[in-house]
Design a protein around this nucleic acid. Structure first.
Lengths: 210, 210
DNA sequence: GTCTATATAGTGATAGAC
DNA sequence: GTCTATCACTATATAGAC
């Protein structure tokens, strides 16, 4: 068997995979269930048979992705290393993870920015979960400890998060523009991401130092 | 006359203004010419009478906004000050300008990311214009001069641009999430942006120092 | 310049045959 | 489980009356 995964796939999962790909590329509004069906090679009715509504299909994919992303972030926050090495490996993890799924940041952002319902949904499901609150408080405590030890500039934990998020997420969001506007090959794009990872790490480390 | 601007407005300009507002809020795909007409208070046929197609209407707005943004960036790059003060006032200008139009970054990004045609269009119209190439080369020369004088870390001009863009643009893109997920008031959002402007300036200045 | 009316096509979703 | 057929709706765009 050349491709176990493909061969054993059910229609239900194939629809989901194709839908994800299209939602990632085009966003929710610009993707129709007809297009999904066409790309899968089934009828449009089947898409609705399995997922009933387009919104429902989307929501499953969306939640799964958010959950996966939050897991990566959670794991990155638990660290026994020095604060500098913690930052270093967190940034590295974010870049490496997103490199395997470069469209994810834009996909999540698009839906969260343009659809207030999705933000509400996200808040209910995740933000107020005690686990995440705890993690943030731990980070905050750690930042304060570092500052008292004189190793860290006077910055909020939230600002560190925002800056790292900005520098990481924007890199991936801007990739299609970088590639097209400057006529870069896929290989050059990969090099660019790697280069940005190094530079972002350098900038953040030097920028938060006391 | 209470409102000169409103009173003297033609239908053509009103349609354009309303269209811009809706495109900003919802994006191209999610906005219909019917909705635009309804909000203007005219028939949908009139929208097409003035602009023929929805794509055409959008394109005029899009180009105008891009042009305005590029003008701001261009002006910020011409500076007689020290490099540090140049960075300081550029970042300040970007934040202040975008604060008057917080949805602009997402609007531009959305269309450039999800529509390859728009990127092509942008490249034809702007990227290869000699004026912009010149400006970038001047920035590059300045960066090299600063490095030889030992005042600047070993960074590409392009990396400085990317980092500043990331930290600035992402701030505004994430505002709806910041506001909703953390239940912030409009006033708190304004404070947050102001705070980020200070912190981004601090981070960049410390981060690029030799 | 602005309207009504309509052509044409695409959408999400469902009913019912097999 | 998968299909065909179809409904109700909305979309963009245009033709033609006023």
């Amino acid at each position: 068997m050349v491709n176990d995964k493909m061969v054993n796939e059910t229609m239900e999962t194939r629809i989901r995979e194709v839908a994800q790909e299209l939602f990632f590329k085009q966003g929710y509004a610009a993707t129709s269930t007809t297009q999904i069906a066409k790309e899968v090679g089934c009828t449009q009715a089947l898409v609705h048979y399995y997922y009933r509504t387009k919104e429902n299909l989307f929501r499953q994919i969306f939640l799964e992705q958010i959950e996966a992303a939050l897991n990566v972030i959670s794991r990155s926050l638990v660290s026994e290393e020095s604060f500098e090495n913690f930052l270093r490996s967190a940034i590295s993890l974010y870049f490496d993870t997103l490199m395997q799924n470069p469209r994810l940041p834009y996909f999540v952002l698009e839906e969260l920015v343009s659809n207030p319902e999705r933000r509400k949904y996200l808040r209910e499901h995740f933000v107020k979960k005690p686990g995440y609150v705890m993690l943030y408080m731990q980070l905050e405590a750690r930042v304060k400890a570092e500052q008292q030890a004189g190793r860290l500039a006077k910055i909020d934990a939230f600002d560190i998060m925002m800056s790292v998020a900005s520098l990481t997420v924007f890199t991936f969001i801007s990739l299609p523009m970088y590639q097209d506007l400057l006529s870069r090959t896929d290989e050059q794009v990969r090099e660019f991401v790697h280069h940005r990872k190094e530079e972002v790490t350098r900038l953040v480390l030097q920028g938060v130092r006391a």
